[in-house]
C-alpha cells in the first residue's frame, strides 16, 4: 500500500508547492523615438518654449467626449511655432498607455509617431503604413476625423487609442489657436 501512496502524496505536495501566480506576460516597454528627437525633427529652426494648456471646464467636456473619459492630467504641455503645434499625448490601448507624438499644422495632422509602446499586442500601429494614414486629416464639426482610418487585425484597441489621440491633438490645436489680435 505505501508503495502506491508515496507517489500520490508526492504529486499532491508538488501541486501545493507549485507557484500559483497569474500568467501575466510581461509587456516590454519600447521607446521608438525620444521626446527630444521628436521635437527636434518637428521644429527645424529650434524647439520653441513649451506652453501649457489647462484643461478647464470649457475644454474638459469635449476631451471626455473624444476619449470617453477624462484626460489623466490637469494640463497638457505643447510646443507651438506659428501654425504648427506638437503634442505628446497618452492614451491606454488595452491596459497600458501609448505615448504618441502628433504634429498639427494649419488644422491638419502633419505627422503622427508612436514614441513609446507598452502593450504586449498591437505594436503594428507604430509602422508608417498605419500612421501615414493620419496625414492631412482634419477634425469635422462633430469632432471626428474627416478621413477613414483602416484598422489592423489584432490591434483594434491600439488603433482606436491613436484615432482618439489624433482627434484630441486636432482639438487642442484649435483651442490653442492664437486669436487674430494675438497673431
Amino acid at each position: 500500500m505505501t508503495k502506491l501512496l508515496k507517489p500520490i502524496f508526492t504529486l499532491l505536495l508538488l501541486a501545493l508547492a507549485y507557484p500559483h501566480t497569474s500568467d501575466a506576460k510581461g509587456a516590454k516597454e519600447e521607446t521608438y523615438l525620444s521626446q527630444e528627437d521628436f521635437l527636434t525633427q518637428t521644429f527645424n529652426e529650434g524647439v520653441p518654449t513649451p506652453k501649457a494648456l489647462w484643461l478647464t471646464k470649457s475644454v474638459k467636456p469635449t476631451v471626455k467626449e473624444i476619449l470617453g473619459h477624462d484626460y489623466p492630467a490637469a494640463r497638457i504641455r505643447y510646443w507651438r511655432d506659428g501654425n504648427r503645434s506638437a503634442w505628446i499625448l497618452e492614451e491606454i490601448g488595452k491596459v497600458k498607455p501609448i505615448t504618441t507624438g502628433i504634429v498639427v499644422e494649419d488644422g491638419k495632422i502633419a505627422r503622427l509617431k508612436v514614441l513609446v509602446y507598452r502593450e504586449s499586442h498591437g505594436w503594428e500601429v507604430k509602422y508608417p503604413f498605419f500612421t501615414d494614414q493620419f496625414k492631412e486629416t482634419e477634425l469635422t464639426e462633430k469632432k471626428r476625423l474627416n478621413k477613414n482610418i483602416d484598422g489592423i487585425a489584432g490591434a483594434t484597441l491600439s488603433v482606436n487609442a491613436l484615432k482618439k489621440l489624433s482627434r484630441l491633438a486636432l482639438y487642442f490645436h484649435q483651442v490653442t489657436e492664437p486669436k487674430d489680435s494675438e497673431k
Binding site: S34, Q35, E36, L39, V47, P50, A52, P72, A73, A74, R75, I76, R77
Partner: peptide
C-alpha cells in the same frame, strides 16, 4: 500634484 491631490502634469524627457 495639486493640493487637492489631482495630477496636474507628469514631466519627463524633454520637459
Amino acid at each position: 500634484i495639486s493640493r487637492e491631490g489631482e495630477l496636474i502634469e507628469s514631466l519627463s524627457g524633454s520637459s
